[in-house]
Lab assay of single mutants.
Amino acid sequence: MTYKAILNGKTLKGETTTEAVDAATAEKVFKQYANDNGVDGEWTYDDATKTFTVTE
Rank of each mutant, 00 (worst) to 15 (best):
T11Y: 14
D47M: 09
E27M: 14
F30H: 00
T18K: 04
Q32D: 08
T53G: 02
T53M: 09
T18E: 03
N8F: 10
D22L: 03
A24V: 10
T17S: 11
V29L: 11
Y3A: 05
M1S: 13
V29N: 06
I6S: 04
A34F: 11
D47F: 09
A24Y: 10
G41Q: 02
V54P: 01
T49Y: 04
T18M: 09
G38L: 06
T18I: 14
E19L: 14
F52E: 01
Y45F: 06
Y45Q: 01
A5H: 03
K13L: 07
D46K: 03
T16C: 15
D46E: 06
A5D: 04
K10N: 11
Q32L: 08
G38W: 09
A24H: 10
K10E: 07
E15Y: 13
E15V: 14
W43I: 04
A5N: 03
L7W: 15
A34I: 05
D22E: 04
F30P: 00
T44K: 09
W43H: 00
D40R: 13
E56K: 03
T11N: 13
A48I: 12
D40F: 15
K50Q: 10
G38R: 06
K10Q: 12
D47Q: 10
E27R: 08
I6R: 05
T49F: 05
K10C: 15
A20W: 02
A5W: 11
A26R: 00
T11D: 11
K10P: 10
V54W: 11
A23F: 12
A26W: 01
K50M: 10
A48W: 07
K31L: 08
L7K: 00
N37T: 06
E56R: 02
T53K: 05
T55A: 05
E27K: 10
G38A: 06
T11C: 15
A48M: 10
E27F: 15
I6V: 10
F52A: 02
D40C: 13
K31E: 04
T44N: 08
T17M: 10
D36P: 01
T2E: 10
A26K: 00
A23P: 11
E27Q: 11
E15R: 06
F30V: 02
Q32S: 10
K10S: 09
Q32Y: 05
K50D: 02
T17L: 09
Y45S: 01
D46C: 08
G41T: 02
D47C: 07
N8K: 10
T49G: 03
T11W: 13
T44Y: 11
V21E: 11
D47N: 08
A23L: 09
E15H: 09
T25Y: 06
L12V: 14
G9K: 03
K10T: 12
E27Y: 15
Y3E: 05
T51W: 01
Y45D: 01
G38F: 06
V54Q: 02
V21R: 12
K50V: 03
A24D: 10
Y45W: 03
D47W: 09
K4G: 03
N37R: 13
T2N: 08
V21N: 12
T55K: 06
D36C: 09
T53V: 09
F52M: 02
G38P: 01
F30K: 01
Y33F: 12
K50H: 12
D36E: 13
D36K: 08
D46F: 04
V29D: 04
G14N: 08
A34L: 07
A48T: 11
Y45T: 00
A23C: 13
